[in-house]
Design a protein around this nucleic acid. Structure first.
Length: 449
DNA sequence: TCATCTAGCACCTTTGAAATGT
DNA sequence: AACATTTCAAAGGTGCTAGATG
């Protein structure tokens, strides 16, 4: 195994010509609905997970370009834990509640259009709206299984392959977006998230249109709310007539105002530091502020040791908070400085970014390994034959060879690519000990097809 | 006692087949 | 006959809440 590259200079990475007959590095991925994602991200995105499965909102939707029009690709999504903690919502803020639950079998959602030519994927934004999240560990529907009260981040995989079964020998690239980090919950904790979702999700229209939900009105007046919810939520009906509408309008205004005043990035917490939302700012007690951790996460996204060589490339050279005026200018963000300078548990930085942060819990060991089990969650409408979850042991066999990253991608997604089939390699060490190591995650478990 | 989870509810949008029009 | 548009019912998604669970 070769020495790990200098993580502090990720942008210098260049694709490996020997591994890429085609310019894989030209693939550009952008996140759709960036404005919406940013709104949620600033508050602390929560995703409801239910036993029967719940869609994501905002939904994962990406725009892809730079693919070879006639080559076939698969689009996949998986979810990785952001850290090794379980959280709880306490007094309008998130705080660490303890060590994370043991890792669940990793499932990868395969877009139902897969495989499809590059032209198909580039024709219009790729939506993963059918993707569902569940907390049912025995789920048989192929939903993505997550733990409640944990933080996750979706990763988008683009694999050049003719079918699912040749994926193992294919080169694929992985993209992720800091704004898509979320906390999985079984019931909304932050009422701002509830309001934001109701206001933006068409399926929740019934909850925002005044006077149409008599059931709730009746309950609101005649019954006491759930103990757990009472202090967390305020029913729309409890407000003055029309107040709800105004509230949403106000929220919009607030967001516009905030985004028009980008938070200084150099603080290390460009997204969570919001005067107006600071009391709700997610990860209040997170060992690391989201963005700072994101910076580290990018660094973590180095597949570790198992790669003979790898290269990590940050999409852009600089980083700054996108504004409403230019929400999609992804190039404006990069974390080189964060990578190089941000200490993992710097109380000073925390206090600067989150005045209401409680003391950090002691560092916990990195997330547990996925237990060598993987599942390709196929949409029922998928071209790949619908079948029960496919589990395969890969564990330490999860070898991945080389990280080849786009050299000058305009998107700001984290990206890396590597052939899927490589020899077994030991798990890597990491410069940031308390942070999850990518080598422990099923970067792409196709070892045992 | 508390935090979290579950199931069922009413309301809504989406979807797709059938009917109708051009 | 072929295609486009409209209609409508079923399927499915939504947050809310009481009660269950640990």
């Amino acid at each position: 195994m070769q020495a790990l590259p200098d993580l502090k200079a990720p942008c210098e990475a260049l694709p490996s010509p020997s591994l890429e007959p085609y310019p894989q590095s030209s693939i550009v991925v952008t996140l759709e609905d960036m404005d919406l994602w940013m709104k949620f991200h600033q508050i602390g995105t929560e995703m409801i997970i239910t036993k029967s499965g719940r869609r994501m909102f905002p939904q994962c939707k990406i725009k892809v370009s730079g693919l070879i029009p006639y080559a076939k690709y698969l689009m996949l999504v998986d979810f990785v834990p952001m850290d090794n903690f379980r959280y709880k919502w306490n007094k309008d803020q998130w705080e660490v509640a303890g060590k994370a639950e043991p890792q669940l079998p990793c499932r990868t959602y395969v877009h139902p259009d897969s495989p499809a030519p590059g032209s198909h994927w580039m024709k219009e934004p790729v939506s993963f709206q059918k993707l569902k999240l569940t907390n049912n560990t025995l789920d048989q529907h192929g939903h993505i299984i997550l733990h409640s009260m944990h933080r996750y981040k979706p990763r988008f995989h683009i694999v050049q392959a003719d079918d699912l079964f040749s994926v193992r020998w294919s080169i694929f690239q992985v993209f992720s977006f800091p704004e898509t980090v979320f906390t999985s919950v079984t019931a909304y904790q932050n009422e701002q998230i509830t309001k934001l979702k109701i206001d933006n999700n068409p399926f929740a229209k019934g909850f925002r249109e005044h006077g149409k939900n008599t059931r709730r009105e009746g309950r609101a007046k005649g019954q006491k709310p759930s103990p757990a919810k009472g202090q967390k939520r305020k029913l729309p009906e409890e407000k003055e007539p029309g107040a709800e509408e105004r509230d949403f309008e106000k929220d919009e205004t607030v967001d516009v105002k905030e985004e028009s005043h980008p938070v200084v990035v150099s603080s290390g917490y460009p997204f969570w530091v919001s005067e107006q939302h600071s009391s709700h700012g997610f990860p209040a007690a997170s060992p690391l502020p989201a963005d700072q951790r994101e910076g580290l996460a990018r660094e973590q996204q180095v597949p570790a040791p198992s790669y003979q060589t790898y290269r990590f490339h940050e999409a852009a050279d600089s980083q700054q908070l996108p504004t409403r005026d230019a929400p999609s200018d992804f190039r404006a963000r990069c974390h080189p400085l964060d990578l190089a300078t941000a200490p993992e548990h710097d109380p000073k930085q925390l206090s600067e970014g989150f005045a209401n942060l409680p003391a950090l819990p002691p560092a916990l060991p990195p997330p547990q390994d996925y237990t060598g089990v993987v599942n390709m969650a196929l949409d029922s409408a998928g071209k790949a034959a619908a079948r029960p979850p496919v589990y395969s042991a890969y564990g330490g066999e999860q070898g991945l060879g080389q990280w080849v990253v786009p050299a000058h991608s305009p998107y700001r997604a984290v990206s890396y690519s590597f052939p899927a089939e490589y020899g077994t390699q030991p798990a890597p060490g990491h410069a940031h000990g308390a942070v999850p190591e990518w080598g422990q995650y099923p970067l792409f478990p196709y070892a045992c097809w």
